[in-house]
Simulated assay, not measured.
Amino acid sequence: MDAFDAIPNHVVIDILNKVADVKTLIRCRSVSKRFNSLAAQSDSLLLQLDQILGAAEPEPEVNSPVASFFRSIFKSILPIFSRSAKPAETPKSPAQILAGFNRIRNLDVELYGGDANLEKGAAVKWKAEFGETLKSSVIVAFRSATVNASATESPVNAVETDSEFVCGLKTRVVWTINALMAASTRHHLMGDLVKEHKEMERLTVRDRDEEGTVVMSAAGMKEYREAEARVDEKGLGVERVRDRTEVPNVRMSMRHAPMLKLKSGICLEAATLVVVRPSGVSSDDNDAELATEAFAADCMYGEAVTALLKRRRNVLEMNSF
């Protein structure tokens, strides 16, 4: 007997859970019948969609006259060969990729890149929690960051005038909308996966640039499945098809500093903190808890959150979109 055969199944599964990467585990399933069975039982997975789907940057076209001539010839003869060629494979959805895994508990999905198109130097970082729809979101943004030890910050307890708050408000609202649209798009992308894998306890969807993160707990995923089941019973599934989840009416708790100097010496221009909840939430008392938890692991953003929480809070309402 091979020595590996003597290792108990639960030990092998624990090893495979340390591997986590879905692409590697799919290859492991091709090794043997035992590997095929045990790899499918891995419960902690990392799904990197760009690796699985083979995303790649398109090569730039050369616009010289010679290149254009040969390109036109190629396009004219392409239909002749395409009749006998096999059709290109359709990119698989996350649910299709993970169809062979039947005991997923914790899933971390990494997307190819960020979502927001921002002005040069600007940065928006966010975290959103979903159930059937948005439960809460925390957004930190700034226009630019510089290192300037001599820069001064407005006193934390200084009263911000209405004109100071209104200045640049449109930009801050656009940042917030971009973040909410990106979050709702990611939530929609995971819909089929959440419905099919009822054993999941936590789902995290982030991008390689660490721009934004969507999280769903076991309770949130259960809420989503129940809502979708009600919709299916009414036969409204086709009417609900869209490329993102609808964002409900929300209440935005916004704090802003025209110039925020951090202890590290980094100065953030137009630093903004927004805590978003669905309208109807009676209290904003846990702003600090939500914001601090969302960016606890990030030194610069965590420090910015701590400083911005001391600023004046402005409350805005936004309709569903």
Rank of each mutant, 00 (worst) to 15 (best):
R244Q: 09
N63S: 13
L262K: 02
E57W: 13
G237V: 03
V315S: 08
V274Y: 03
V231Y: 01
T204H: 03
R312Q: 14
S144Q: 07
S37W: 09
Q96M: 12
C299R: 07
G235T: 05
L49P: 01
H188V: 03
D108M: 13
P58W: 08
E61D: 13
I177A: 06
E110Y: 11
K135S: 14
M221T: 02
K170A: 15
E233K: 13
A158W: 06
L47A: 02
G235W: 01
I266A: 04
H197I: 06
D162I: 12
R244V: 04
L118N: 05
M254C: 07
R311W: 01
T245S: 08
F81R: 12
N319E: 15
P65K: 05
G114T: 02
N286K: 08
A88T: 09
V275N: 06
K75M: 06
K23S: 07
I266Q: 00
R172D: 09
K120R: 10
K23H: 10
S68Y: 02
V247T: 04
V281E: 11
A122R: 03
S76C: 08
T171N: 13
E293V: 02
K310G: 14
L134N: 02
A56E: 14
T152Y: 08
F70S: 08
K135C: 07
A270K: 00
L180P: 00
A3G: 10
N36V: 04
K125G: 08
S68F: 02
R172S: 09
A179W: 05
K127A: 06
F74R: 14
L193T: 07
M254A: 05
K92A: 15
E196W: 01
E239N: 09
P94C: 07
P94N: 10
S64N: 12
D209N: 13
L45I: 11
P79I: 02
V166P: 01
E303S: 13
R172L: 07
S82I: 04
V205L: 11
L189F: 06
A128L: 05
S42H: 05
V205T: 12
K18C: 15
E110F: 11
S64W: 05
A227T: 09
N63M: 12
E153R: 10
F74I: 03
I80V: 15
I97S: 05
S82E: 15
A229L: 15
E317H: 12
N249T: 09
S283Q: 12
I266M: 03
Y224D: 05
G131S: 04
F321G: 01
E59V: 12
L290N: 00
V315F: 09
E293A: 13
E246N: 07
T171C: 11
L180H: 00
G235I: 04
F4H: 06
D284M: 08
G220P: 03
E160P: 06
Y224F: 14
C28H: 03
R230F: 09
E226N: 12
C28M: 11
T204E: 12
D243G: 15
A304R: 00
V19G: 06
W126K: 02
V194N: 00
L53H: 02
A149D: 14
A149R: 14
M300R: 07
